[in-house]
Design a protein around this nucleic acid. Structure first.
Length: 158
DNA sequence: CCCTGATTCGC
DNA sequence: GCGAATCAGG
């Protein structure tokens, strides 16, 4: 007898068929023959002995190509951010916000942008001080930062 | 989460 | 051709 793994000999194939027709699960068949479950299923598929289960639901004629990331999915941070926040928005947000009007808490008035600069409590802590947008406590640029349109998730599987 | 079968694809 | 990886349903 060959010491090498005989893979699928006629004996194993017979056992495979017998067990399959007996109604045993692939798990049982695999355990009995001594191979992995996928090996059994793969062999059955090759022999066209599948019980035609998912074939009906899997629409064999119009199989979804399923772009399978066989290894990795290298995505640039930029692309993800652009997708999440919206391409047009990122440009506006990342644009330069005038900080020439920075002022302290005392100097803030109703028309001054109250966006905090630096960390609260720091010696140089101050506010943006730019002209605030109508009905908003921040200037245009900082209003955009405050209103992040971040609500994109949970959209999988059609 | 576990299980199952079925398909895909690298070897 | 084989089977691990993967997918999809239960």
């Amino acid at each position: 007898m060959p010491v090498l793994s005989p893979t699928w000999t006629v004996e194993r194939i017979e056992l495979l068929k017998q067990h399959f027709e007996a109604g045993l699960s692939c798990r049982e068949i695999a355990a009995d023959i001594g191979v992995s479950r996928n090996a059994v299923i793969g062999k059955l598929s090759r022999l066209n002995l599948t019980r035609g289960r998912t074939l009906d639901e899997r629409r064999p004629q119009d199989r979804t190509p399923v772009p399978r990331p066989r290894k990795a999915v290298p995505r640039l941070q930029f692309e993800m951010l652009a997708t999440i926040y919206g391409e047009a928005d990122t440009a506006g947000v990342t644009g330069p916000i005038d900080d020439a009007n920075r002022c302290s808490l005392m100097e803030l008035d109703a028309n001054s942008c109250r966006w905090p600069i630096s960390t609260p409590g720091a010696e140089d802590f101050c506010f943006c001080g730019n002209a605030a947008h109508e009905g908003q406590p921040y200037c245009i640029g900082h209003s955009r930062l405050a209103y992040r349109p971040n609500s994109r998730a949970r959209v999988m599987r059609g």
